[in-house]
Amino acid sequence: MTIHVKFFASLKDKLKIDDTTIEQAKTAGEAWDITTHNTERPDNVLVAINLEYAQFEDAIKAGDEVAFFPPVTGG
């Protein structure tokens, strides 16, 4: 089982990462560090775990989907 990590919008363009998987991470913040190779996290980055807004220190487990994205601008 792996953890799926997704990036959207300006973050996807900037980091040049769309969708990836990692073997393990304890928190969403650790998933950021692993997938971005410790890129400094912009202040306004939002995180979702399994389609719900979450915090970077929230725990994640195998099978989870973690997404990172900038503030939303729909409507």
Binding site: A9, P70, V72, T73, G74, G75
Partner: peptide, 10 residues
């Protein structure tokens, strides 16, 4: 919707 639904405009 504008603050929570994950849409982004370019």
């Amino acid at each position: 919707l504008k603050h929570r639904a994950p849409f982004w405009k370019k």
